[in-house]
Write a protein that binds this DNA or RNA. Structure first.
Lengths: 160, 160
DNA sequence: TATTGTTATACTCTATAACTATA
DNA sequence: TATAGTTATAGAGTATAACAATA
């Protein structure tokens, strides 16, 4: 919706994407894709991907919670969470005990191995962020996260 | 990796996700998901989704380019681009003429209908962004996009 | 040989309906 | 009846290999 550049195909025509680049949504997608590729590479040595890393972090920080509580905290649908938990369990990183007061629910906790793996992975993720956000100052990084959070929460800070 | 909160399951335990929230990557994912849901809703009346909207925008701004040029500009793999172009073509929003100088390639252009649909959809997307980024000032919005771009480009601004 | 567009394929992420066992 | 976890399924998004037509 911006550019002149009415050319035919001839050679190395540079594509004008200025219209799209103005949209935070488009830029978020582009940036996140780059970030995710790098993050996945960094997590691979630990047998983790983004979602299993996030889940394991929450379990270590909040031992004993149920799957539905964790799924809700991650804004995930519970059916999609089942495979994640299975994967962490299969790798011996977490245990699933039946909750004492509600025999439908599990209480998820990290194993010693899980805690150790997470500690290492956590450092790797921090290194990954330090590298990928290396062009930003610490203040800018905080401002970025804060602004993104406002986008997530919405204009009125709706809780619903 | 932060919190105390070693509770059992009992009732409405609030989950501590402070560790994850410090990561720009996690926050980007959460924010983008919210944004995408709203954007899809806004684009539905026009029969577009995020990727077809983006593609149509590029075609209107850069008439006559080939699929591979556009796919590269959007950082997409060409096989995944085929369906996008088919979809826009099926809806009568673009035409695919064989390029005059290279009979392997197509020269993609928007139809009159395509241009009109995009103009309306473009306004809708702008309204969507104005709403979703409503908690940010115009300066903040620009800063957000600029910082995200730096993340995409990388610390050294690598072009490769 | 290399490139454009294509098919086929596979893996991830996301969303919904419906089931089971407990409550 | 409602909830926790599960299964099955379907739709997007993303990635690679391999092919035909053309360069």
């Amino acid at each position: 919706m911006t550019g002149p550049s009415v050319q035919t195909i001839v050679g190395a025509t540079s594509v004008s994407d200025a219209s799209l680049r103005k949209f935070a949504g488009y830029q978020m997608k582009r940036s996140f894709n780059v970030l995710q590729v790098d993050l996945l590479k960094r997590l691979k040595p630990f047998g983790l991907r983004m979602v299993t890393f996030s889940t394991l972090t929450l379990i270590v920080d909040n031992p004993g919670l149920s799957q539905s509580q964790l799924a809700e905290a991650m804004a995930m649908e519970s059916p999609n969470f089942v495979g994640i938990v299975d994967e962490l369990h299969r790798k011996g990183l977490i245990v699933r005990d039946r909750a004492t007061d509600d025999r439908r629910a599990y209480a998820l906790c990290a194993t010693d191995v899980g805690a150790k793996v997470l500690a290492q992975a956590f450092a790797a993720v921090q290194a990954h962020e330090d590298q990928l956000l290396g062009a930003l100052t610490l203040n800018e990084r905080e401002a970025l996260v804060a602004m993104l959070r406002k986008v997530e929460t919405g204009p009125k800070g709706k809780t619903t």
